[in-house]
Structure formats: structure tokens, C-alpha cells
Amino acid sequence: MSSPSSNAASVSTSASTTTIHLTVNGRTRTLSVEPRRTLLDALREDLHLTGAKPGCNMGQCGACTVLLDGEAVYSCLALAIECQHQAITTIEGLAHDDQLDPVQQAFIDHDALQCGFCTPGQVLALKSLLLRDPHPDDDAIERAMAGNLCRCGAYPKILAAARSLAGRAS
């Protein structure tokens, strides 16, 4: 979570706009934000990466899920200024050229979405699980996906997509 430097000094920032550096999808991005800027707003408003969605903005829906060092988190509850030493992955960073990430492809193959609003968060929550555990059982999948609401009710198909990935990896 912190800089690897052991003698790193305290850093003080005024309440007004300051320059920060974020590593997003492998690229270092420099932006000017106030300390109160959430990671979600920095991604969407400053970097125009609109894959992470603002749903509830209070950590109660999961639509804003991104990965910090591979761990799924709610970007609406993180301050951008505090994410400068972690690798941030958004849905825009999963595909490489024309090659979708296997999780994205599995969602398409299993029709695991309807309106799609929650889908970036669902995909990243599942991605985080598979990074830790390539062969999750149903209980592990359901637990890993418990923090992402889908108001269309695509849960059974999301589970099917996840199962196919767990099987494919085995």
C-alpha cells in the first residue's frame, strides 16, 4: 500500500488542487485534483475512463469496482490522492488490442448481462477472485460476487460464466 522507500517523508497537501500521479492500466497518469476527489471521480471526470460506474456513491452497489494491486475495491470509497502507489486496473485495461480478457468473453458467451450498468464491476470482482484462486468452487464464486448488485437479476448467468472460467482453468 505504501511506497517501498523506508525513509519516505510525510507529505502534506492543502485543500486546493494538487498534482498526483496514478498508475492506471499500466500507464502513469498525471492529474490535478483536490484531496477530496474520490478515485471514481478521478477516473471518470479527470481521466475520462467511464467504465467504472457511479451507482450509489456510498459503497452499497459495487458498480464502481476497480482493482487496486489486483484486489477488488469500491472506487467511490477511495480517495484518489491515496492511490498513488498502487496499480489501478479498470475495465478499460482488461482487453489487449482486440483480445478480450477471458472474463469478458465468458460474460458474452453466457449472456451474463442485460442493461450492462453493473457489468464492469461484476467482471472486475470476478477477475480479482480468479487472480487469487483460479479454480473457485460455487461457494467461493458466490462469496466473491456478493459485493456487486445486478438489478436486472443476471446472477445465474454470471455464476455460469464464472463456473466456465473455473473449469476452463482446470
Binding site: 505504501s2 519516505a8 517523508a9 510525510s10 507529505v11 502534506s12 497537501t13 492543502s14 485543500a15 486546493s16 483536490e34 484531496p35 477530496r36 480517495l79 490522492i81 491515496e82
Partner: peptide, 19 residues
């Protein structure tokens, strides 16, 4: 959210000093 200053510390004793 209202504006606030932001301080990053590396250890508990720095946090205590700042508090």
C-alpha cells in the same frame, strides 16, 4: 464532501504528532 487538507504519514508516531 467539504474540502480538507491531506497529510500522509509513514508511522504511528508521525500521526500522533500531527494529531
Amino acid at each position: 464532501m467539504r474540502p480538507f487538507e491531506h497529510l500522509t504519514v509513514q508511522a504511528a508516531d508521525e500521526a500522533i504528532q500531527a494529531l
